[in-house]
């Protein structure tokens, strides 16, 4: 089986080339990459840690779609690239600092947790969102983030919903206040993020939930106000 990998090194000319490698007997793409590195090319650079889909370090794009290398079964002829929209350091290894900044700017953390009784149903409301492994696959797939780096992006917004939906959290309005600028109204609801999430999280739906919560707090969807000059209310 052959796979093609997009290589990148900023000091080389040209910095980016495609290279094809023969691999055999690799149950996952990560196994294939490790095999290439050990047996054929020690310069091939990529990130990995747990090999079981929980650490979130090995996200790459295969045929343009974000996957975890350790969970993807490689097929002949596939094209492997680094995540898009984030800076590539070398080959498949990317800088995630700028992506992770969105967690701080969206206040994707607990603000005012109180001791309140939670039951199994309450727990289920945040179960899926708290499965997130921060692999950044969703961000890489996001066309809004691609054109506007100030956009808070899917994983941060899903995590904000995880705290808004948490029964213990009291400062729900403060959470909403933090995501109305460059956040929930900028999403086009294309659903790419939902499609690529290796954990089955649905950021698109979480963003819709945040939108309706925002409306409850008196915010209006600015995209629906376009007819204001006609003096019409919809």
């Amino acid at each position: 089986m052959k796979i093609k990998i997009k290589r990148f090194h900023p000091h080389f000319e040209p910095p980016s080339i495609d290279m094809e490698y023969e691999v055999d007997n690799a149950p996952t793409l990560l196994d294939a990459l490790l095999q290439i590195k050990r047996q054929k090319d020690r310069t091939l650079t990529f990130d990995y840690m747990c090999r079981s889909g929980v650490c979130g370090s090995c996200a790459v794009r295969v045929e343009g779609k974000e996957v975890l290398a350790c969970q993807h079964i490689p097929k002949d002829g596939e094209y492997i690239e680094p995540l898009s929209v984030v800076d590539v350091i070398r080959d498949l290894s990317v800088r995630l600092e700028d992506a992770l900044v969105t967690l701080g700017s969206s206040k994707a953390y607990p603000l005012d947790m109180q001791k309140v009784a939670m039951n199994e149903e309450d727990e289920r409301l945040i179960e899926r969102q708290s499965d997130c492994i921060l692999c950044s696959g969703c961000l890489s797939s996001c066309p809004v983030y691609e054109s506007n780096e100030a956009f808070l992006g899917p994983f941060a917004l899903s995590r904000v919903w995880r705290y808004v939906a948490d029964k213990r959290e009291q400062a729900k309005k403060e959470h909403i206040d933090a995501v109305v600028q460059n956040g929930i109204w900028d999403c086009t609801l294309c659903g790419n993020c939902t499609q690529v999430c290796p954990q089955g999280i649905d950021p698109k739906n979480d963003i819709v939930m945040l939108q309706s919560k925002a409306v409850q707090f008196g915010y209006q969807n600015p995209n629906l106000g376009g007819f204001g000059s006609f003096g019409l209310e919809f």
Binding site: D47, C50, V54, G56, S57, L100, I133
Partner: peptide, 10 residues
């Protein structure tokens, strides 16, 4: 690695 990419996650 990045902090959430550590052994504790496993």
């Amino acid at each position: 690695h990045y902090p959430t990419q550590s052994q504790t996650s496993m």
